[in-house]
Design a protein around this nucleic acid. Structure first.
Length: 130
DNA sequence: AGTCTGACCTGAT
DNA sequence: GATCAGGCCAGAC
């Protein structure tokens, strides 16, 4: 048999989706995972680096998915532009986020990162291998 | 299939 | 100076 009744899925080398970039989600993870210890970043910064400055909301949603991510994502190092631990409520324990930050040497008071502009870490562009 | 929300940010009133 | 609304992408129901 070999008949191939029809071109079921036949040759379609690549219509138009060579997989440019997986999902901006993976990009976000890549950036978040690159955050060094003792540093924090903001959703907007990640979103901008990911190429979606107007979509900072999705970054938060991405963090939510981070719990389901194959690898642990330091979501506790991600705070909003004000340095507030807005997502701390989404952690296993509402104090875990602060605990982790303090454990890394970051001073947190009242759910607010102290010296935010000093511990703030600007994420680099996800350099892609040529 | 369409609809809605989501850990936000920025600009304008 | 504070408040309101808009915007973007992706997943879940």
């Amino acid at each position: 048999m070999k008949t191939s009744p029809k071109t079921k899925k036949a040759a379609s080398a690549r219509p138009a989706k060579p997989k440019k970039e997986p999902n901006f989600l993976d990009t976000v993870y890549a950036i978040v995972r690159r955050i060094p210890k003792g540093r924090v970043t903001s959703y907007g910064a990640i979103a901008e680096r990911a190429g979606i400055r107007l979509s900072a909301r999705m970054v938060g949603w991405a963090m939510n998915a981070a719990g389901s991510a194959p690898k642990p994502v330091p979501a506790h190092r991600v705070v909003n532009s004000k340095g507030l631990l807005t997502g701390k409520h989404h952690f296993p324990t509402p104090t875990l986020m602060q605990e982790l930050l303090e454990a890394e040497g970051i001073e947190v008071k009242n759910d607010q990162v102290q010296h935010f502009d000093k511990v703030f870490w600007n994420p680099p562009l996800p350099k892609k291998k040529p």
